[in-house]
Design a binder for these strands. Structure first.
Lengths: 346, 346
DNA sequence: CTGAAAGCGCTTACAG
DNA sequence: CTGAAAGCGCTTACAG
């Protein structure tokens, strides 16, 4: 009688006995319900792990096909997204993993029912989730954590306080490098046109910019640092505002290449020459930077590598491995092209 | 009481009632036991069929969750791919369908074992396959056809002789419109820089170009129609060849916006002004056309709509519906911007 | 939060 | 052969 529980594959009741709880409680933990005390959940999860228990759903999904990872973009219609996507797809194909892709508006992502979403992912056997430039709350991540679905965020909009895993670039260092390049050319009136105030990566770039100014004893001027969207429209309107200042900047550091494109447009409209009248540095270093006229000096992000790294982390977590660090920043690199020069004479 | 069995998915007890036997007997039939009388077995089997009953094992193998469609790009690193992808993802999200994405080199696609591929798709419950700008042989398509997996090709490289379903744009009409626009401006020395000779869509554009010339009694000149890749590099080298002719063209019709970008680069290098010295028309009408200087006159393809249409066709085929036509062409539209003008005086 | 009790869908063991 | 009865593994609804 007592031997039977040793060899055969563990059932829910065995787990319950080992954890010292009732079967319903184990059932709740397995199905990701939230009405279980943290301590109880921990004990049950340990018992589950020790016995190697698999729920019917898990058994069902384990049998079918190659591993699938879900990938969600907060809108894919940018060069940035395309390069991240390329990195992820290349690595996925090398690892024999399939990518289930969706592009979702930030609004929809925020309103989505994460409980249902996570449950659906378990049921269809997804190994993990990669989110790109998304805002995620701790509560939302909890829906996934409770079901042991690893989540990795690329360029998270909010700071990684909630203990989630994320991949980014050295935004602060990149912002500093861009600004120091301009300072080295002789500029002192340097403005920053960044992304949304809420976007962690943009804030880091802003602080890199401020650090460079401070390091060279250049005071930050009022009205010289503006926040908006990571898009061409904000680049144009921001540039218009900056050029209308009593003392307009001689150089603009744009928080993305798209923003820089808008600046180029506005400069052209006002017959302000780049780089003769005003210098311009972008951020991202996508293919776009090569195609503008003048070609854009830009801080390159290793977007493909960021995609690879995110997928690799998700797959490692799915295998139960632990990561060295919850947050990884890959190096940015300033690529000098034709949009920066010495400031115009007085 | 009696209504409840009508709507919900049938359980074993329902089958038993309909067959006039007990649940255990149905269980035996399902599990292939031999202790069931032939007549009883027949009645049970009929009831099973009529109710569409699925055993837990059957349910397990038929993949759970929302419908999935596989999407394969022949390289996604272009604006073209991005717009097609956007169209597909939007429609997928509206229909509650999930997209499994891969980007594959043409070589790998050609060498892939289509038998295994198709079998894998059946096993993981994929509803269909969308291929973008791929070359497909009848034999390969057969692997999918035998397994009733619908396949739709967007912009097939080979002509749709093999009876496969495809979605494209009115390439011939677009080529003709581009060329007639140039003729209307007064050009007679008009060259064509097209994509690969094997690409059906490029051939159609070439013939549209030739038709326009012929329609206006303008002879096609030797060396004026070149074939290469749909990329910037070919645009630059092709333009260099054309400009080196004893009688260089006064206008170039490029088979894609990427090709046109290369032409712009080469023109700039040679200090040939666009449109003053030479007019330029692109093809695709992606966001790129808006971002060049001068902004590019281009034949716009409805890429998002082509993506939508392809997915819609796959889903209809998967439901067993029939399509009105194996091949659909959506309308192209010439968008005149700043890269075309009257030819320079002699 | 927790678990006793009831229930669900299916299978097994066995009397007839 | 057949099916009433018992049982299995899991989930649900709800009292405390």
């Amino acid at each position: 009688m007592s031997e039977k529980s040793q060899r055969s594959k563990p059932v829910l009741a065995t787990v319950a006995a080992l954890a010292g709880v009732s079967a319903p409680t184990v059932s709740k933990v397995i199905n990701g319900r939230d009405d279980v005390a943290a301590g109880t959940r921990a004990r049950v999860q340990e018992a589950l792990e020790r016995l190697g228990y698999e729920s019917p759903v898990q058994r069902r999904s384990r049998s079918a096909g190659p591993a699938m990872v879900e990938l969600v973009f907060d809108g894919i219609n940018t060069q940035y997204s395309l390069e991240v996507l390329t990195g992820i797809l290349d690595y996925a194909s090398a690892e024999g993993v399939e990518i289930v892709l969706s592009s979702v508006t930030p609004r929809k992502l925020h309103n989505a029912n994460h409980e249902e979403w996570a449950q659906r992912m378990v049921e269809s056997g997804r190994k993990g989730l990669v989110l790109v430039t998304s805002e995620v709350t701790g509560k939302q991540l909890d829906s996934f954590k409770r079901r042991s679905i690893p989540v990795v965020v690329i360029d998270p909009l909010n700071p990684p306080h909630s203990g989630f895993v994320s991949v980014g670039a050295t935004n602060w260092a990149g912002g500093k490098a861009a600004t120091e390049h301009l300072i080295a050319l002789g500029h002192e009136r340097i403005a920053y046109l960044g992304g949304p105030e809420a976007a962690e990566c943009s804030v880091a770039r802003l602080h890199g910019y401020l650090a460079a100014l401070m390091g060279h004893g250049i005071p930050a001027r009022p009205g010289y640092a503006l926040a908006g969207g990571f898009n061409q429209a904000f680049g144009a309107s921001g540039a218009a505002n900056l050029l209308a200042l009593p003392e307009p900047p001689t150089a603009i550091f744009a928080g993305s290449d798209d923003i820089a494109l808008g600046v180029l447009d506005e400069a052209r409209r006002q017959n302000v020459r780049v780089p003769e009248d005003i210098s311009l540095v972008g951020f991202d270093g996508t293919a776009l930077a090569e195609q503008t006229l003048p070609r854009l000096t830009s801080v390159a992000q290793p977007l493909k590598e960021m995609g690879r790294a995110a997928l690799r982390s998700v797959l490692r977590l799915a295998k139960g491995e632990t990561l060295d660090s919850l947050h990884v920043e890959l190096a940015t690199e300033l690529v000098v092209r034709d949009s920066t020069a010495v400031p115009p004479g007085p």
